[in-house]
């Protein structure tokens, strides 16, 4: 369980994270979404005690990260900006990590096996490909068999097989009752793996809700029809108030009209239908819609009816490039 309360971080004039409050519950994969510069990485660094918040707290199972005894046994973390020394071998890197938290040295071999790096254990990290480096980072996160995982862009650099492996791993971790928080800019990937979503924009909470509720509430579902005479049917539907777009292959995408009405209009006009199906909005479209809406409402207060408070009105200049403050 990760509990973020009223977290705020400013860098000079820019408020990168703005009064953020949400919890990440065990037993589910929670996706952390937001456009570049929304403050995801900064929030994750504050959870892990690397960046000091200006106000607010981030607690993991009731304690701040820096107060955890042997933290790697509680939290497995992967950050985009954390990279092991290139001169170490993969094995030595995991060995010192294990020693620092009194983790059984036997775990080193196990996690290398888990991420498929056993053959590269004695290679220096500087010779690793992007994907291998990412696997090593995941091995380090899994080392202490932690009940909480915080992973920033974990699929970066992984190949298709690696992505599928990670998806299965995260699923099984959540099913075992662990808390899993992942950020990703890949919406299709997020749609496949996340049960719950925390969406932020300009450092503020936009949504904290289940994946299906998020799509149902904010997504635009559509009806797809396929007929030999698409132009005429499109005219008929449009005259009845639907928004119709042609899709490749002779189909029509109908928004703003239930499938039953589409079917009735088609029957009345004598159109033979090759296909009639309803589609929930994609996570990508829904996410972009929510971000757009928040951007439009920015400064006048955002109320999208979700559980989170979205901050007070009138604070401007909250943009900040993600990672710009990760200078050493």
């Amino acid at each position: 369980m990760i509990d973020v309360q009223n977290l705020t971080k400013r860098y000079g004039q820019a408020t990168v994270v703005d009064s953020l409050t949400f919890t990440v519950r065990p037993g589910a994969v929670t996706g952390f979404l937001g456009p570049n510069g929304a403050g995801k990485s900064t929030t994750m660094r504050m959870m892990l005690g690397l960046t000091r918040p200006d106000t607010g707290t981030a607690r993991i199972d009731g304690r701040a990260y820096v107060d955890l005894t042997y933290p790697l046994r509680h939290v497995g973390a992967l950050l985009e900006t954390s990279a092991p020394h290139r001169g170490l071998t993969a094995r030595d890197h995991l060995r010192w990590l294990a020693q620092s938290n009194r983790i059984d040295p036997g775990r080193v071999g196990q996690v290398l096996e888990t991420v498929g790096l056993s053959d590269a254990a004695r290679r220096r990290i500087g010779t690793f490909s992007l994907g291998m480096g990412q696997r090593l980072g995941l091995a380090a996160a899994l080392l202490g068999d932690p009940p909480v995982l915080v992973l920033d862009e974990p699929v970066n650099g992984l190949d298709t097989e690696g992505i599928r492996w990670l998806r299965d791993l995260l699923r099984s971790m959540a099913d075992e009752g662990r808390t899993v928080l992942i950020s990703s800019h890949l919406m299709t990937e997020m749609a496949l793996v996340a049960d719950h979503l925390v969406v932020i924009g300009r450092g503020r909470l936009l949504a904290d809700t289940g994946m299906s509720e998020f799509l149902a509430r904010h997504g635009r579902s559509s009806v797809r029809v396929r007929t030999p005479e698409p132009e005429r049917l499109a005219r008929e539907l449009a005259s009845s108030g639907a928004t119709v777009t042609r899709i490749p292959g002779g189909g029509l995408d109908v928004v703003g009209m239930p499938a039953a009405d589409v079917s009735r209009i088609a029957a009345k006009g004598g159109f033979p239908l090759d296909e009639l199906s309803t589609h929930a909005g994609s996570l990508e479209d829904t996410f972009l819609g929510v971000i757009d809406q928040a951007g439009a409402a920015h400064g006048t207060g955002v109320d999208d009816g979700t559980t989170g408070t979205t901050g007070s009105t009138g604070s401007t200049g909250t943009t900040g490039e993600e990672g710009r403050n990760s200078r050493v």
Partner: peptide
């Protein structure tokens, strides 16, 4: 980024 890894292990 070694310092971040080190601080995660020994905060």
């Amino acid at each position: 980024g070694m310092m971040r890894v080190s601080l995660l292990a020994v905060p």
